[in-house]
C-alpha cells in the first residue's frame, strides 16, 4: 500500500468521510507545504496525548481537571448532567449556567449494547455522596433514550436527598406554533406555567 492509500484509508475512517472525500483530502494535503502537514500531524498526535477525561466530571480536559472544574467561580453545588462533552459547549453558549457538569459518556441504548455500566452514572453517585452537591439537573437529550437515561440517573440518586430536576422542553424561541410538531406542542402544554 502506498503512503497515499494509507492516508486515504485512515481519513475514510472518520465520520462523514467517504472514500472519494478521503482521496480528495489526501491530494489536497499533498499540495500543502511540508511544514503545514507536519503541524497537522503534531496537532492530531497531541490530541490523544494531552486530552483526557476530567477526573471529576468526565468533560474533556488537559490535565487532571477540566476548565470548568478548575474554575473557582463556578457553583460546585449544582451539577448539570449531559450525555456528551459537546453538550457542555451548547449549554455554555447560552451563558446562563454557572454550575458544574457531569458527562455520562452516552445514553442508554440497549440495541447498541450501551447499558448503565458503559455510562459514568456510578461516578456521579459517588460525587453526590460526598455531600457538597445540592442539585442535579438532568440535561440528557429529549429523546426516548435520553428520557430513559434521565430516569435511570434519577433512580440512582433517589436515596441521596439531593434535589434532582429535569430541563424543560417545549417550543423553540422564535419558533412558529403553526409548524411545530404535535409532540413538541403536547410537551409544551404539559410544562406550561403561571404567568406572573
Amino acid at each position: 500500500m502506498s503512503a497515499i492509500d494509507d492516508l486515504a484509508a485512515e481519513l475514510a475512517r472518520l465520520p462523514g468521510i467517504g472514500r472519494k472525500t478521503a482521496m480528495r483530502l489526501t491530494y489536497h494535503l499533498l499540495k500543502q507545504p511540508a511544514e503545514q502537514n507536519r503541524r497537522l500531524a503534531v496537532a492530531i498526535a497531541d490530541l490523544s496525548e494531552r486530552i483526557q477525561p476530567c477526573a471529576r466530571c468526565f468533560n474533556l480536559a488537559e490535565g487532571e481537571l477540566c476548565a470548568v472544574c478548575r474554575d473557582p467561580r463556578r457553583d460546585a453545588s449544582v451539577v448539570c448532567v449531559v450525555e456528551e462533552p459537546a453538550d457542555i459547549a451548547a449549554v455554555e453558549r447560552a451563558g446562563e449556567y454557572r454550575g458544574t457538569y457531569h458527562v455520562l459518556g452516552g445514553r442508554l441504548a440497549p440495541i447498541e449494547g450501551i447499558g448503565p455500566e458503559q455510562l459514568t452514572a456510578g461516578a456521579l453517585s459517588r460525587r453526590v455522596a460526598d455531600g457538597t452537591i445540592r442539585e442535579v439537573i438532568l440535561a440528557t437529550n429529549p429523546s426516548l433514550e435520553g428520557e430513559a437515561t434521565a430516569l435511570y440517573v434519577q433512580r440512582q440518586l433517589a436515596d441521596t436527598g439531593v434535589r434532582v430536576t429535569r430541563i424543560a422542553r417545549g417550543l423553540p424561541v422564535g419558533g412558529d406554533l403553526e409548524f411545530a410538531d404535535g409532540v413538541t406542542i403536547a410537551q409544551a402544554l404539559q410544562a406550561r406555567r403561571e404567568m406572573a
Binding site: E147, L151, G182, V183
Partner: peptide
C-alpha cells in the same frame, strides 16, 4: 408525517428494555 408517539416507553425502564428487545 408523525401519527403516534409512545412517551410511555421512556417513562419506565422495564418498558424501555422490552421495547428495545422488540425493536431488535
Amino acid at each position: 408525517d408523525l401519527t403516534r408517539t409512545r412517551p410511555g416507553l421512556g417513562a419506565d425502564l422495564g418498558r424501555f428494555a422490552a421495547a428495545n428487545a422488540l425493536g431488535e
